[in-house]
């Protein structure tokens, strides 16, 4: 582990009562990085985020931020911001007072306060809404108030809980751009929690995939998308055809099935292989599948095949000849197109 990391989680263990939710988590985040904690609900990502914020006590291990051990520092003294999924704006205060809330607690008053609040509101494009109550704003505007409220505090780390999940498609793009701009302008370190792989892939510098309280894989979006290390990660990022390997053969419910070509030298130790639907060769190959379902998806056409390997999902260009439901199609799973999995779980 790098000694110079900005935020370090060192064997951090989190528990609800006696039930350990996150055991001995190790994570190092560099200053100015945008990190995504990705995983299904219950994987411990939100628990981890709450612990970094100080809302959940750390059972054992350490949290070190900017060279200071903050494991036992109270949540209100950590300089960590959190943008809640529900935004958590104060309903009885105006937009202005929401943004001024933390600054006033710091003792800031008068023109200094006013300038800072106005600047915060202007940066998210809401200067003209200063006197409104949160309930009078749209969801997207409320979220930007929440962002401004956190950012005027100049936090060392900004945590974001599912920042895009409550927004419709258009606002989602706006907010993504907004977050990237804020990060570029201020250089703040951001960690966001999401269950949506597309959100993580499009926004993060690095993605931390979590499962059952443990880190499954850490990597760049390209790493995670193209080189998943385990069946869990592969499944999570859209590899639909995943098989364990045994003695160089695919292990299926119908026994061991030999591959059409030998395994390459790079993957002698692979525990499994995974193919996206796009990686399945359709129309030729040693395997036979019966078309159970097909659907047109614009550029491409998707097929669901029943075969000796089990259920196979394939996706080919829409310009290719159509295979009717019930017909038999030849297909291949080529080893050199597959993503090799070092762990199968």
């Amino acid at each position: 582990m790098s000694k110079t990391s900005y935020l370090t989680l060192d064997k951090m263990t989190l528990a609800y009562g006696d039930a350990v939710a996150v055991p001995e988590l190790e994570l190092a985040v560099e200053k100015g990085e945008l990190i995504a904690l990705l995983g299904p609900s219950g994987c411990g990502k939100t628990t981890t985020m709450r612990a970094i914020a100080g809302l959940l006590p750390v059972k054992s291990g350490r949290v070190v931020l900017d060279g200071v051990d903050i494991t036992r520092v109270a949540a209100n003294k950590r300089a960590v911001g959190l943008m809640f999924q529900s935004y958590a704006l104060f309903p009885h205060l105006t937009v202005y007072e929401n943004v001024a809330f933390g600054l006033r607690l710091k003792g800031m008053r008068g023109s200094e306060l006013d300038a800072k609040v106005r600047a915060g509101l202007t940066s998210v494009g809401l200067a003209q809404f200063a006197d409104r109550k949160p309930a009078e704003l749209s969801g997207g505007q409320q979220q930007r108030v929440a962002l401004a409220r956190s950012m005027v505090m100049e936090p060392k780390v900004l945590l974001l809980d599912e920042p895009l999940s409550n927004l419709d498609a258009r606002l989602r793009l706006d907010m993504r751009t907004e977050l990237q701009r804020v990060q570029k302008d201020t250089g703040v370190t951001m960690i966001f929690v999401t269950h949506d792989q597309a959100e993580a892939l499009s926004l993060a510098d690095r993605i931390v995939v979590m499962k059952s309280g443990r880190i499954e894989q850490i990597g760049t979006p390209e790493d995670i998308y193209n080189r998943p290390v385990s069946a869990f990660v592969a499944d999570f990022v859209g590899f639909e055809n995943i098989f364990p390997l045994e003695a160089g053969k695919l292990k299926t419910s119908a026994g061991l099935v030999p591959l059409s070509q030998p395994l390459s030298d790079q993957t002698p130790s692979a525990a499994g292989l995974a193919w996206r639907p796009r990686m399945v060769t359709l129309g030729s190959g040693p395997f036979r599948g019966t078309v159970r379902g097909t659907s047109f998806a614009g550029h491409t056409r998707e097929y669901l095949l029943d075969s000796v390997l089990g259920e196979i999902k394939a996706e080919v260009d829409a310009s290719e000849p159509v295979h009717a439901i019930g017909t038999e199609v030849a297909f291949d799973l080529e080893a050199d197109r597959a993503a090799p999995l070092s762990r199968f779980n």
Binding site: A53, G54, L55, A75, N76, K77, R78, V80, G81, L82, F84, S86, A88, L89, F90, P91, F101, G102, L105, K106, R149, S150, M153
Partner: peptide, 15 residues
């Protein structure tokens, strides 16, 4: 009343 507004207040420096 949502309880996360209390956490928000704490993270903004309130006891």
């Amino acid at each position: 009343l949502r309880s996360d507004i209390e956490e928000a207040a704490v993270l903004l420096g309130s006891s």
